[in-house]
């Protein structure tokens, strides 16, 4: 079933990219493997998915796919607590959800100690919803500037999670805003030219996100099917 789902996803991504004249190869699927068995994630990797995302450090440790099934990058896509920084650096390649300086510093230090170069993305809260993680747009500049100064972590780009809407088109302004924000930050020299990643869009709204410039879409349900909570 994962294969069929993936084929359909790829077709939809291709179509969405074509609609706005984008190169479909600049869009990658992050398989959001929260509450999925390791087997499912491994199957996705065998079908060519190269990015596996998890929301919780502990689950990610327990369910990390074996390297034998193919090359993949492991992404943290849930909120990261500072006290889990060391563990997170050990297990993940990329933290997509960085939103505060203390955690940035903890990740930088852990990355030095573990001896790896960690990729990070800044999670921006564009809707201002208080229950959502992410740094506000106003405060993002300072955090990005300081994060760029850290020697052991690489800033890859921005991530956002718009409010939930039944109509996927309602999220469009948030996707557009994140892309504009990235372009402005790079133009202003605050963010490196290489920090082009935009992680935005999930099962319900990824086509709209791709139209607006997403380079990473975090797909769970549309790939693995509806989650079954035991």
């Amino acid at each position: 079933m994962i294969k069929e789902n993936l084929d359909l996803l790829r077709m939809k991504i291709l179509a969405a990219a074509r609609r706005t004249g984008r190169d479909p190869n600049t869009v990658r699927i992050v398989a959001a493997a929260k509450s999925q068995s390791r087997d499912s994630a491994e199957e996705a990797i065998r079908e060519g998915v190269t990015l596996i995302g998890h929301n919780y450090v502990q689950e990610a440790v327990k369910e990390k796919p074996s390297i034998g099934c193919g090359p993949f990058e492991y992404h943290m896509i849930g909120h990261l607590q500072k006290n889990k920084a060391k563990k997170a650096v050990e297990i993940f390649d990329v933290i997509q959800t960085l939103d505060d300086w203390a955690t940035a510093e903890a990740l930088d230090r852990a990355a030095y100690e573990v001896g790896k170069s960690l990729g990070v993305m800044i999670q921006v809260n564009l809707s201002g919803e208080p229950q959502k993680s992410g740094i506000s747009r106003n405060e993002a500049n300072a955090l990005i500037q300081k994060t760029e100064s850290l020697n052991n972590i690489r800033l890859l780009g921005l991530m956002t999670m718009p409010p939930f809407f039944d109509d996927p088109d309602a999220a469009r302004p948030f996707f557009r805003e994140l892309r504009q924000m990235r372009d402005e930050l790079i133009a202003a020299g605050v963010m490196e030219r290489s920090a082009t990643e935009l992680s935005m869009g999930m099962t319900g709204d990824f086509e709209c996100a791709v139209e607006e410039g997403a380079t990473l879409v975090r797909i769970g349900t549309a790939l693995f099917g509806v989650r079954i909570y035991a």
Binding site: E105, D108, R109, Y112, E113, K146, S149, L150, N151, N152
Partner: peptide, 25 residues
């Protein structure tokens, strides 16, 4: 460095990390 104040390292690991922070800058 970059708005961060580095004091005296409290242990070896912190000393290494401080030097990694200063490296090349």
């Amino acid at each position: 460095i970059d708005g961060r104040i580095l004091g005296k390292p409290s242990d070896r690991a912190e000393a290494e990390y401080m030097l990694s922070t200063l490296s090349g800058k």
